[in-house]
Simulated assay, not measured.
Amino acid sequence: MCLFTTAPYVRPALGPGPDPAPSERNALRARERTVSEECDDSSASAVSRLEERRRRMAAGFSEWKVNRQYSENERVVHLGKQYRCLVAHKSNSASNPKTTVKTWQAYTG
């Protein structure tokens, strides 16, 4: 699991004493590669989610929020899906776009 730190992964100190055996050194190097790959995959996934969110916002979609006044034809994103408001209303936790078909319609473009 990557913690999205800017600092590179640092191998734990082995303490005083002789150098580790070749098999132990290889195991440590393999662990470094695994951690590095996990961070690269996690970071790429987070970046692609952020890019997708920015794309939606640029297309006129905002994140759906509770206790907000919505006007007819306003577009939102809720749980990764796009919706269009059918009727002006104030949102609440029980009437989100996924569960309320009278006020929201899935947006198909």
Rank of each mutant, 00 (worst) to 15 (best):
G80R: 14
A30Y: 13
R68G: 01
V77G: 04
E52G: 08
L3S: 15
L3R: 14
S71H: 00
R56Q: 08
V101M: 00
A13M: 04
A58M: 08
E24W: 05
A94N: 11
K90A: 14
V10I: 06
E74C: 08
D40F: 03
Q105I: 03
A27D: 13
V66T: 12
K102T: 14
K102S: 15
S95Y: 09
P97F: 08
T99K: 14
S62V: 01
A44T: 12
K102M: 07
E52M: 06
A58T: 07
L14I: 14
R49W: 07
P18C: 03
R49H: 09
R55S: 07
L3C: 12
T34D: 15
E38A: 09
L86Q: 14
P12F: 04
R75C: 01
A94F: 11
P12T: 12
S36V: 02
A30M: 10
G60P: 00
R68F: 07
T100D: 15
R84L: 01
R75Q: 09
A106T: 11
D19Q: 12
L50W: 11
E74L: 06
R54F: 07
W64F: 07
C39M: 04
Y83S: 08
P16N: 06
S91L: 02
N67W: 10
R75E: 00
P12R: 13
R55P: 01
A44Y: 04
A59C: 02
R29H: 07
N96M: 05
K102D: 15
M1E: 15
W64C: 03
A59P: 00
K98V: 08
R55F: 05
R11C: 07
K90N: 08
S23D: 15
S91K: 02
A7T: 05
L79G: 04
G17P: 15
E38L: 06
E63P: 00
R56F: 00
G60T: 05
T108N: 09
C85R: 11
Y107K: 03
L79R: 15
A27C: 02
S93D: 10
F4T: 06
A46W: 13
T34L: 14
K81V: 00
L28S: 11
S23G: 14
C39H: 14
K90S: 14
T6E: 07
C85E: 11
E38T: 01
V10P: 00
K98C: 05
L28I: 09
Y70L: 07
T5F: 00
T5D: 09
N26C: 11
L50H: 14
V76I: 05
N92I: 01
E37C: 01
S91Y: 11
R54Y: 08
D40M: 01
Y107N: 12
L86F: 11
E32G: 05
A13D: 12
R31P: 03
A94L: 12
T100G: 02
E74D: 09
